[in-house]
């Protein structure tokens, strides 16, 4: 149960940081905590595919960005009274935005996963990257939603009982979603679906021989993973008040992957640790030098070479299987 303690401590630290910043009146740091929560949520999504399903997707920015665009397009049409594809009106309801973001990401992930899962290893990495690039270039060249310039979100969508335009409230909402997703993942992974997914990752021959075809299990995990990334993207876009093709770019896919690897692949709270470290480095070292990513590279190198379980591995020891 040591990993559970470490996970709870990490989440507690993030919550304390956000609340502390708010108590001190430091809005910048409250927003920074919300950014960590969003990025960690995207990482949690990728971790489901990469860490628990063994699917090294280099295209999760596509799902993250689609979620962002769902939020952006919903806000745009709520503002101008138009409709997406002529039928879907805009909305200012945050749960509806979340649902739209998850559906958009999930619907994209279904064919992408179905095709990509026919390949393995480096080919899987490349084909997921290729699909993400297709969506990226489509967003750049399609003029209706800002093209290369992106879409502004003038007003955040609304949630009952909460003032989402308030930095603290928005952080708390993001944090609550992060915790809910992590708890949900923990439950599903400990249950029968998770057992099948673990076998699909560790030995698909064993799973098939037992009588369960690995492909549908992997595909379901891939789609769920994309939906979580899409939800994270919607939050991220609303946090920044802006969505652009940069959210879909392969740099972003790499960033999400770096966060998962820094924190610990296949560790539930790995993306939380990774996102905290990533955003901290970006902010602290990025304040000293614009070449902060050089330092990030060195740290990543250190983690890959010396702490293969990532931060969680260093704090909680190796994975224990039931």
């Amino acid at each position: 149960m040591r990993e559970g303690v470490v996970s709870a401590a990490l989440l507690g630290a993030l919550l304390a940081f956000g609340l502390g910043a708010w108590a001190l009146g430091e809005v910048f740091f409250v927003n920074l905590a919300a950014r960590v929560a969003c990025v960690a949520l995207a990482g949690a999504g990728l971790n489901l595919a990469l860490g628990f399903g063994g699917m090294v997707s280099f295209g999760h920015a596509a799902f993250f960005g689609l979620g962002g665009y769902a939020a952006g397009i919903a806000a745009t049409h709520a503002f101008d009274g138009g409709a997406f594809a002529g039928v879907l009106p805009g909305t200012t309801s945050m749960p509806v935005v979340w649902l739209a973001a998850m559906l958009a990401a999930g619907l994209a992930a279904l064919p992408i996963g179905l095709i990509s899962l026919r390949t393995q290893g480096v080919y899987f990495i490349m084909i997921t990257l290729a699909f993400a690039q297709m969506i990226f270039y489509f967003a750049i060249s399609f003029p209706a939603y800002g093209g290369e310039d992106g879409l502004p979100i003038y007003l955040r969508s609304e949630l009952p009982l909460v003032d989402a335009s308030d930095p603290l409230d928005f952080f708390l909402v993001s944090f609550a979603l992060l915790v809910a997703v992590l708890l949900g993942c923990r439950t599903v992974l400990a249950a029968r679906f998770g057992a099948a997914l673990a076998l699909a990752r560790l030995n698909p021959v064993r799973l098939a021989t037992a009588g369960i075809a690995p492909l549908p299990v992997l595909l379901a995990a891939f789609v769920a993973s994309a939906m979580i990334a899409g939800l994270a993207g919607a939050l991220f876009a609303e946090l920044n008040g802006f969505v652009s093709p940069a959210m879909l770019s392969w740099h972003r896919s790499g960033e999400i992957m770096v966060i998962v690897i820094l924190g610990g692949v296949g560790r539930l709270a790995g993306p939380v640790a990774g996102a905290m470290l990533f955003v901290a480095l970006e902010t602290v070292i990025g304040g000293w030098t614009q070449y902060w990513q050089g330092w990030l590279g060195l740290i990543l190198l250190g983690v890959v070479l010396f702490a293969r379980g990532g931060l969680i591995g260093a704090l909680a020891g190796p994975v224990r299987h039931g």
């Binding site: 599903v188 249950a191 029968r192 299990v217 039931g322």
Partner: peptide, 10 residues
């Protein structure tokens, strides 16, 4: 129920 998502297998 081959793919339950709630009850832990352990």
């Amino acid at each position: 129920r081959r793919f339950g998502v709630l009850r832990p297998v352990a």
